Simulated scan of single mutants.
Amino acid sequence: MIVVGLDLGGTKIAAGAFDGKRLLSHVILPTPKEGGEAVVRALAEAAEKAEEEAGVRAEALGLGTPGPLDFREGVIRFTPNIPGVRNFPIRRLLEEATGRP
């Protein structure tokens, strides 16, 4: 199974395409400071670039975020270092932006 792992940080977004435990690609983009919608666009871009670099299409995405995350609801409660991300429905918006769970 091919997946893309995304790490949302206060200054950078890291993305990697994986085939099982094997890393196929690695991409780093700056984290936008304009708020939630810009963060979603940047996460989707990072996933796409990781896929392109690896020459694959992921079946699913995984996401690590700063601050508390309501895993069941897919909502970032707040981030200490990214403005405009409070009670933010990241799972739904990222699924809509990428077409993948």
Score class of each variant (00 low, 15 high):
73 E>A: 15
96 E>C: 14
24 L>F: 11
13 I>F: 12
42 A>Y: 14
58 A>T: 06
101 P>N: 12
91 R>L: 01
54 A>W: 02
81 N>G: 09
42 A>V: 08
41 R>Q: 13
37 E>N: 12
27 V>Y: 10
2 I>V: 14
3 V>D: 01
75 V>C: 04
87 N>I: 00
97 A>P: 06
45 E>C: 12
97 A>V: 13
7 D>H: 13
94 L>Y: 05
75 V>N: 00
57 R>M: 06
19 D>P: 07
90 I>N: 07
91 R>I: 02
53 E>I: 10
90 I>G: 01
7 D>N: 15
70 D>M: 08
46 A>G: 10
21 K>L: 14
99 G>K: 07
84 G>T: 04
34 E>K: 08
48 E>V: 11
48 E>M: 12
54 A>P: 05
26 H>V: 13
1 M>D: 13
36 G>I: 05
61 L>V: 07
83 P>S: 13
29 L>T: 11
90 I>P: 02
88 F>M: 02
62 G>M: 00
15 A>L: 09
66 P>K: 10
69 L>G: 00
68 P>Q: 15
63 L>H: 01
12 K>N: 15
86 R>D: 00
90 I>C: 04
40 V>G: 04
26 H>S: 14
79 T>N: 05
63 L>T: 02
5 G>T: 11
49 K>Q: 15
75 V>W: 01
77 R>Y: 08
39 V>F: 06
28 I>A: 10
80 P>N: 14
49 K>H: 11
80 P>L: 12
90 I>L: 13
94 L>M: 13
64 G>V: 07
61 L>S: 07
11 T>L: 11
27 V>K: 12
70 D>E: 11
87 N>F: 11
6 L>C: 05
46 A>S: 10
50 A>N: 00
66 P>T: 13
101 P>Q: 09
3 V>E: 05
23 L>S: 12
7 D>C: 08
57 R>E: 12
81 N>S: 13
20 G>I: 14
2 I>N: 02
97 A>R: 11
54 A>V: 09
51 E>F: 07
3 V>S: 04
44 A>P: 09
98 T>E: 00
43 L>T: 06
48 E>P: 01
93 L>S: 03
91 R>N: 00
83 P>W: 05
10 G>L: 08
12 K>G: 15
